[in-house]
Simulated scan of single mutants.
Amino acid sequence: MTQNTPDRRATFLVWGALGIVYVVWGSTYLGIAVAVESIPPMLSGAMRFIVAGVVLGVIVLVKSGPQAFRMTRKQFLGAAGVGLLLLTLGNGMVAVSEQYISTGLAALLVASVPLWLVVFRFVVRDRPKALTLAGVLVGLAGVAALSLTGAQGGSAVGIVVILLASLSWSVGSFLSSRIAMPSNAFAASTVEMLAGGAGLILLGSGLGERLDVSAVTGRSWVALAYLVLVGSLVGFTAFSWLLGNAPISLVATYAYVNPVVAVVLGALVLSEQVTMQIVAGGLVILVGVALVISTERKGRRPGPDEISEETSDKARGVAREEARAEG
């Protein structure tokens, strides 16, 4: 009885944190759509990540002290570069795309990120298993089906932009585990958010975006506050805790649960149309992603309290970078 109590508490905490990641990150697509109703997309992202980066930086300083931010120039530039790929180009283009396509369609196409990561691994001679490649082919077939048909969820422009966003996320995630990065994950996230936010200001201003505060609705301000406090801070904190306390195979399930949550919320809150094309194409993508993730994690079958060094260094590192983009 005494021994089982800590186990039950740990299980409850794991599923509680996982539930937060499922719902919070699935809802960020809805939050972005509402925010860009009256705030320019690039500038809305800039405000989101700069505020979140400052808040996270202060928390890190209070908890860990200035030493948490000790990093070499190479590590700083690595984190800044990843921030530009994930947040400026990745998340920024998601915000732009949601002016043209539904949140559900955006989330389903972004779910293809794990598939592109496998493609990049293949290019650099890291040969994935046959089942992994099969999952990639299945998933990309779903992406092609949704992209070519439009799935009645938006324009071709929006689809092209969201696919470019997914590609940028994938490149950032792929490089993050292969370049010098700050040793403290939260310090790295702070640099990424601030660099990504600064990049969004420059890009948005260069493209002619201007913020008219008087034109911003209360609904958009609430959505932006939600993205900062809940999407970026609460969601990422829960995810980071999961990386140290749960099997990576379980944590990785967020990749195919978030799109489902996004589709449901888009239909319920924004009355977005969920067509049979979206359902069918989305299911194909998620089956491919699930096959990739499950096959990649089968090698050693680590338990909840035992994760191999390889899983820790590679799988967690890439998962963390995907998560920074997601949240």
Score class of each variant (00 low, 15 high):
N258M: 12
A223F: 11
R300Y: 11
L233C: 07
A255L: 15
L250K: 15
V251E: 04
G281M: 09
V260N: 04
S249D: 09
A267Y: 10
L224A: 04
S271P: 00
W241Q: 07
F236Q: 13
L283F: 14
V292C: 11
L242P: 06
L250P: 01
V260F: 03
A262F: 03
I293G: 00
G266L: 05
V234E: 04
V289Q: 07
V263C: 09
A225V: 15
L286T: 09
I278R: 03
R300I: 06
Q273L: 02
V279L: 15
S308K: 01
T275C: 06
V260D: 03
A246L: 08
V292D: 07
G231R: 10
P247L: 09
V261L: 06
A252K: 06
A262W: 05
P259S: 05
V263M: 08
L291S: 12
L283E: 01
S271C: 00
G281R: 08
L270V: 06
E306H: 14
Y226S: 05
A255T: 15
S232M: 12
G266F: 04
R300D: 12
T253N: 10
G231D: 10
Q273P: 00
S240L: 14
V287D: 01
T275E: 06
G231K: 10
V287P: 00
G288I: 11
G281V: 06
Q277A: 13
S240M: 12
V287E: 02
W241M: 06
V263D: 11
A255V: 11
A255D: 03
L268G: 02
G282E: 11
V274T: 09
V269Q: 03
A252E: 13
L268T: 12
A238R: 09
V264A: 14
I285F: 06
L229R: 02
R301K: 13
V260Q: 05
P259W: 08
R301M: 12
I278Y: 00
L233V: 07
G235Y: 10
G235L: 07
A262Q: 09
A238G: 04
F236I: 05
Y256F: 15
I278Q: 14
D305T: 11
E306A: 14
L270D: 05
G235N: 10
K298S: 15
V263K: 09
T275M: 07
K298A: 15
L243D: 03
G282Q: 11
A262E: 08
V289F: 11
S249P: 00
V234M: 15
Y226A: 05
G281P: 11
I293K: 01
L291M: 15
V274S: 07
R297F: 12
L286H: 09
T275P: 04
V230D: 10
Y254V: 09
F236N: 15
N245T: 06
V279Q: 04
T253G: 00
L265Q: 08
T275W: 03
P302W: 09
L229C: 13
A225T: 14
N245K: 14
T253Q: 14
D305I: 00
V251F: 02
A280H: 01
L242Q: 06
A267E: 07
L224P: 13
V228L: 05
T295P: 00
V230S: 07
A290Y: 10
V287F: 14
L283S: 15
V261E: 09
I278N: 01
